Amino acid sequence: MDKDLESAPVKSISRAAKLLRILSEMGTNGGALSDIAQRSGFGKATVHRILAALNDEGFAYQDLTTRRYHLGAGLSLLARRAAVGEITSLAKPVLMRLAEQTEDTVYIQVREGYRCVCLGREQGSFPIKTLSLSVGQSRPLGVGSGGLAILANLPSAEIETLIDANRRWLSEYPSFDAEHLPRLIRQTQAQGYAFVDGLMIPGINAVAVPIRGADGRPIASLGVTAIAERIHGDRALWIAGLLGEEARRLSAILLNPNSQNT
């Protein structure tokens, strides 16, 4: 065996990974120090030391009332960032395909807490470009067709919480402020897609649909923007259909990465 693999730092990493797997198996109830030590085969002192280090990094925490250990939010953050990176890499051919089909500008946005961020943009061949959003630009969740598609597909209580938390930021977008957003959300829920007709920029319309994660919750959105004459009536429905197909395909690939090779 490579001597480097027997070094203390490598052993510590291996042991930490084993403890994290054990915590994940213990579920929401977490685990007592003695139970974790028994399952791992490590001594209590070793387990306590590693869990303390994981706690410092946000990967585990101890409930001060029950004294039981749980997985920390840091792992969820890493997982979300990994999912974002995966979505970004998978989205490029999707954006190119949609831009070719619609000849208009296509966007993908991802939810980050109380906001949505543009991860990618692809321009179509139509001579009038509608570059209403730059890659890396963020907006309050619910603003614009992409943010609206995400927000409208969250549970009602979460929607209310987000609108209230973003109330001041939303006021910077009068057509999407806390007073107007509930109506747009109801409209989006009824249609099955978000449609914004000149609310962000006069004369510019947009359509978007959510991309769902493994739990069915919206994690991102696909959208198309163009001059109003190009997104209305039957053509808006056609674009929404194209977006829906690609969003479902992306969701399926995220659930089963091997499916893109079959």
Rank of each mutant, 00 (worst) to 15 (best):
M1C: 10
M1R: 14
M1F: 12
L5Y: 12
P9C: 11
P9Y: 11
K11L: 15
A16H: 08
K18E: 11
L20F: 00
L23H: 00
L23C: 07
E25L: 10
M26T: 01
N29R: 14
G30H: 08
D35F: 02
A37P: 00
R39T: 00
G43K: 11
T46E: 13
T46V: 06
L54Y: 06
A60D: 01
Y61I: 02
Y61V: 01
L64H: 15
T65A: 04
L75T: 01
A79R: 12
R80Q: 15
R80F: 10
E86H: 12
S89Y: 08
S89H: 04
A91G: 07
K92R: 14
V94R: 06
V94G: 12
L95H: 13
M96C: 10
Q101L: 15
E103H: 11
D104A: 04
V106T: 07
R111V: 03
R111D: 13
R111A: 01
G113K: 13
G113D: 12
C118S: 11
R121I: 07
Q123E: 11
P127E: 02
K129M: 14
T130M: 12
S138N: 02
G142E: 07
V143D: 00
G144R: 03
G147P: 04
L148E: 03
I150G: 00
T161C: 14
T161W: 13
L162T: 01
L162Y: 15
N166F: 04
R168Y: 06
D177Y: 13
A178P: 06
H180N: 08
Q187W: 06
Q189N: 01
Q189C: 06
A190T: 11
Q191A: 07
A194S: 08
V196K: 03
G198I: 04
N205Y: 15
V207A: 05
D215I: 13
I219H: 04
L222Y: 11
V224E: 08
V224M: 10
I227H: 07
A228F: 10
R230C: 00
I231C: 03
D234E: 15
A236S: 12
G241L: 09
L242A: 05
L242C: 02
G244E: 03
L250P: 04
S251P: 11
N256P: 13
T262V: 10
